[in-house]
Amino acid sequence: MSDMETTQVSRLPRGQRQGLGPLLVPLVVGGLVAIALGVYGRVHAPTGYAVGPSGFSAPLAMKSWLTTGAFLLAVVQVFSALVMWGKIKMNAPWAPALHRWSGRAAFILTIPVAFHCLYALGTQFDVPRVMIHSLLGCFFYGVFTVKMLALPKRGTPGWTLPLLGGLTFTALTGLWLTSSLWFFTTIGVKL
């Protein structure tokens, strides 16, 4: 938002200003999602097995490659968002569709990974890398929930979607660093 737009918004009557009210329900629901995932992962007795690694050598390889795919699609998300918001100047009528579909595909790739992590392994706090990974996983799904619920809301501040998108990307980047990158550098690049 430019300085002129900020000044214009601050001069609006109190009832017409953009406020945080429309974000209250998305924030509460997203927080509950993050907490519920963490609690479930902590109280559920890990089974050690959840998802068959169809086409992959092992569940860790499957999770590493699916997370890498989701991370690469998240990079596409950032690029398309920058194009849509005019931060990268180009004539790209395809950017909104690319943004929506790359986001959908990235989210779908995370589902079997999250299911395996929660059901087979649970939330763990004994190893720092795994603890950070567990917390980031809960945070990722919480902030993703907030972003999806905030999308259709009118009257939210202009920084809402860029902030939520940035937090979602940051959480997914952290998840990739604490899982896929760790796997590829410790175990090796395997299918």
Rank of each mutant, 00 (worst) to 15 (best):
D3A: 08
M4R: 13
E5A: 14
R11F: 05
L12E: 00
P13M: 06
R14I: 14
G21I: 09
P22C: 03
P26N: 09
G31H: 00
L32N: 02
L37T: 12
V39R: 04
Y40I: 12
Y40H: 12
Y40T: 14
G41I: 08
G41M: 13
G41S: 11
P46A: 12
S54Y: 12
G55M: 06
G55R: 00
G55C: 02
F56I: 02
A58I: 00
M62G: 09
G69R: 02
G69P: 09
G69S: 07
L73R: 11
A74K: 01
Q77R: 14
Q77H: 12
S80R: 09
A81E: 15
V83D: 12
W85S: 06
K87Q: 15
A95L: 04
P96H: 06
P96K: 09
A97E: 05
L98D: 05
G103C: 11
L109A: 04
T110V: 04
I111E: 01
P112I: 12
V113K: 04
V113L: 08
V113T: 14
A114D: 07
L118N: 04
Y119A: 11
L121K: 14
G122E: 11
G122H: 03
G122V: 05
Q124R: 15
C138K: 09
V143C: 01
V146D: 00
K147R: 11
K147E: 11
M148G: 01
M148W: 08
L149T: 00
K153Q: 15
T156M: 10
T156P: 05
P157R: 06
P157T: 06
T160W: 08
L163G: 01
G165W: 00
T168G: 00
A171W: 07
L177R: 02
T178I: 04
T178Q: 09
S179W: 07
S179C: 04
L181C: 09
T185G: 02
I187W: 04
V189Q: 00
L191F: 11
